[in-house]
Every structure is written in structure tokens, then in C-alpha cells.
Simulated scan of single mutants.
Amino acid sequence: MTDSPITDPKALRALSHPFRWKLLQVLTEQGPHTATQCSEKLGESVASCSYHLNMLAKYGFVEEVEGAGRQKPWRIVRGRQSISSEGLEGEAALAAEAAAMAYLDQEFERTRERLRRHEHLPEEWRRTVGTQGTVKFLTAEEAVEYHAEVQALLEKYDDRRLDESLRPEGARAVRYFLAVTVAPE
């Protein structure tokens, strides 16, 4: 279920703004929200939220949903944003790097904030939260195979991300973040 990497420099630049990752997070984890609701959750002005949501919509990351009233909620269109500078050159490669760095900054900020709140979670959730690091000594081929196995595991329950009706009672957004790096020779 892996989405193909985003290669359009303009779409990548749209993702290089850190606040847009926060909006994507809210819509992914909490479902459709209006600009006003996003403003309340993120402490940013309604005008700013509306502007950034419109920029995300321009490049197909979110869309407005039909709803009651004048304000329409926004929802996620793409379940996953895949960013890689591989095969890109010039402006596109720079835009991919900027988008990836904005994503990482947001991801680390989110992780730090959630780890700070660890002791306030109910006991059954506290046991699932934490960080872990490991080093494996692998060949390039083994690393590709290992990555595919982990990716398959991470894709389990993906259908629940965009379809709330598939979520069992008591389900909460649980974030898994995986970073794979290779030591220099």
C-alpha cells in the first residue's frame, strides 16, 4: 500500500512548511476538522489554518467534505506522504530535502511532547509508549529485505486510518515512527 514518492517540486514545497505537517497530523489522527477547529487545537489563527489547508488542498493532500453549515471540514486525501530525493535533481531535490526536514522536525516535536505526557496515560496505554534503538549489521540486500518485512508490519491496520467505521471501540491513534540510517564507511 505504499504511495509513490511525491516528485512535483511545488507539492514538495507545500510540505516544507512545518505547520502544514501539524494540520496533516490533526486530520489524520482526529478526522475531518474545520479551519476553526484546527485553530482551536493548534493555537493558530483561523485565517492561518484556512490558508495552509488551502495550500495542502491545492496539491491534493486534503479536501473539503460536505457538511452542515457554512464551514466545511477538511479531510486527508492521501493516507501517506512519501518523500524521497532519489532520482530528483535541482529544485525538486532541494524541495524534497526541505519537505523531509520539516517532516522530521514535526515528528521529533510530536514524539518529545507525547513522551513528556507518558505518566498521564492510563496504565494500559503506558506499557505501549516508549523509544527503542538498535543496530543491525547487514548487507545492503539484507537491509532491503529487513526493511520490507518491517514495512509490511507497519501497514497492518492501514485500512482503519481513512475509514473510521473499521476502528474497533477504544481504538486510539498510535504513532509508529521508524528511521533507517546507514553508518558511513
Results as ranks from 00 to 15, higher is better:
residue 131 T to R: 03
residue 118 H to C: 11
residue 117 R to W: 03
residue 165 S to K: 11
residue 113 E to V: 05
residue 147 H to L: 08
residue 166 L to T: 02
residue 132 Q to N: 12
residue 140 A to T: 12
residue 150 V to P: 00
residue 150 V to W: 00
residue 130 G to E: 01
residue 166 L to V: 07
residue 154 L to R: 03
residue 104 L to H: 06
residue 139 T to G: 03
residue 137 F to H: 07
residue 131 T to N: 00
residue 172 R to P: 00
residue 141 E to P: 00
residue 145 E to Q: 15
residue 100 A to P: 01
residue 116 R to D: 15
residue 130 G to M: 05
residue 155 E to F: 01
residue 147 H to M: 07
residue 171 A to V: 05
residue 110 R to V: 05
residue 103 Y to N: 04
residue 151 Q to G: 07
residue 161 R to G: 04
residue 115 L to M: 07
residue 158 D to S: 08
residue 150 V to A: 09
residue 104 L to W: 03
residue 134 T to I: 13
residue 102 A to T: 03
residue 102 A to K: 04
residue 116 R to Q: 13
residue 133 G to H: 10
residue 121 L to I: 09
residue 171 A to T: 12
residue 140 A to D: 15
residue 169 E to D: 14
residue 150 V to C: 00
residue 116 R to T: 08
residue 145 E to I: 09
residue 121 L to M: 14
residue 157 Y to D: 15
residue 128 T to N: 08
residue 128 T to V: 13
residue 140 A to P: 13
residue 118 H to Y: 07
residue 159 D to A: 15
residue 104 L to G: 03
residue 164 E to D: 15
residue 101 M to T: 05
residue 102 A to P: 01
residue 120 H to D: 00
residue 143 A to N: 02
residue 131 T to F: 02
residue 164 E to G: 03
residue 117 R to M: 14
residue 100 A to Y: 12
residue 137 F to E: 13
residue 112 R to Q: 06
residue 120 H to W: 02
residue 130 G to P: 11
residue 134 T to E: 02
residue 126 R to H: 04
residue 148 A to E: 08
residue 109 E to C: 11
residue 147 H to N: 10
residue 165 S to F: 10
residue 100 A to C: 00
residue 166 L to M: 14
residue 103 Y to W: 04
residue 158 D to T: 00
residue 124 E to Y: 00
residue 146 Y to A: 14
residue 169 E to V: 13
residue 173 A to T: 05
residue 172 R to D: 03
residue 117 R to Y: 06
residue 152 A to P: 01
residue 121 L to R: 14
residue 121 L to W: 06
residue 128 T to L: 15
residue 126 R to A: 07
residue 139 T to Q: 09
residue 173 A to R: 07
residue 163 D to A: 08
residue 125 W to K: 11
residue 100 A to F: 10
residue 134 T to A: 14
residue 146 Y to E: 14
residue 133 G to P: 02
residue 154 L to S: 07
residue 112 R to S: 01
residue 147 H to E: 10
residue 137 F to V: 14
residue 101 M to R: 12
residue 162 L to Y: 01
residue 135 V to H: 06
residue 119 E to P: 06
residue 168 P to H: 04
residue 125 W to T: 09
